[in-house]
Design a protein around this nucleic acid. Structure first.
Lengths: 186, 186
DNA sequence: ACCTGAACACCGTTCAAGT
DNA sequence: ACCTGAACACCGTTCAAGT
């Protein structure tokens, strides 16, 4: 029976988690699906768009923040990091999908809405939400690069997992503290 | 007469600025230097390392921050953004060179030293400096993706140049306000 | 030491032709 | 509509052979 878009995205996620972004090629994806690479173009316009769909699926695991802005936004940042850490090379993937504008969902729409509902102006809400997003993507990209590197070669004695977790926590709270001060939020 | 490493890096910078990262191939770089692609491997171990050297050159334009921590760090963030905006696709380039650990200089060593001299502990200094770096790289990557996209296709009516500048300013000051509060710095 | 020429093992994408 | 087979126009990298 015939393939469909969801099966292609599923298989791409599996290859991503198992072999990483550089090994996620159209030929390899075709092999995993028992099909030639060219056949994939019946279900996907091109590779970039496919990668954007994979990115969207990864981000679908993080719920929109609700409740008081401070714990909500902090929880969102941690949920985002967790969703990214669950899939290999995902921070780079999400960042470039977002950059290309091929994503169907705006990763930052949830937090922006919450902040506007909390009394922030639109541009302040967007500035804060995207600052948090940029920090999270950059931080996780570095974590994932480190763990990619550790897959071969002895582990360098850099930061431990708990150390990068602490650094992450500090970064998030700097932004939230700054926001509370600057926007005089409760 | 024979080529050397600096000429190769120079030519790579020119191609990057003129044609972008995807068109910076070893074959094209060889053409620009009047040489076959294979000959480049006498001066460069591989393409990734070459790209890291290009990233290092771009970052060499941003001076280490000195003076009172707040204006110094803010000035560093703006200088970093300016250096990145001066070279096409540089934010992605710097981010992945940094991720691979092939850079010869640590982009964040200057600010970390300044913050430690200002009384911060090492891990706080590193957390703050890398939070600022991640924010700057993420923000500029998005600016550059937008301008890459505008190179063909009509400009989308998204953010203007001054609007992204304002957003950048907000993000930097959120981090610095947060740091002043959390670390009780002057 | 430096470079050519040619190859190796790949890519993403397209498209006639089959079913 | 969906897929094969084969091609097109590329990649990064290696390496004998020349100078």
């Amino acid at each position: 029976m015939a393939l469909n878009r969801d099966e292609v995205v599923d298989a791409a996620c599996v290859i991503l988690d198992e072999f990483g972004l550089t090994d996620l090629t159209m030929r390899r994806l075709g092999d995993a699906l028992g099909v030639r690479a060219g056949a994939l173009y019946h279900h996907v316009p091109n590779k970039q768009t496919l990668l954007a769909w994979v990115a969207d699926r990864i981000l679908a695991d993080v719920p929109s923040p609700t409740g008081p802005w401070r714990p909500a936004l902090s929880g969102w940042a941690w949920a985002l990091r967790a969703a990214l850490l669950a899939h290999r090379d995902s921070a780079d993937l999400v960042a470039s999908a977002r950059a290309m504008g091929l994503s169907e969902r705006d990763a930052v729409a949830g937090p922006v809405a919450l902040l506007e509902a909390s009394g922030l102006g639109q541009s302040d809400a967007e500035a804060l939400a995207s600052a948090v997003l940029h920090f999270v993507l950059g931080h996780v990209a570095e974590e994932q690069a480190r763990s990619d590197w550790e897959r071969f070669g002895q582990p360098d004695p850099g930061r431990s997992a708990t150390a990068t977790g602490v650094t992450f926590d500090v970064g998030v709270h700097l932004l939230l503290d700054g926001a509370g001060l600057r926007f005089s939020l409760p």
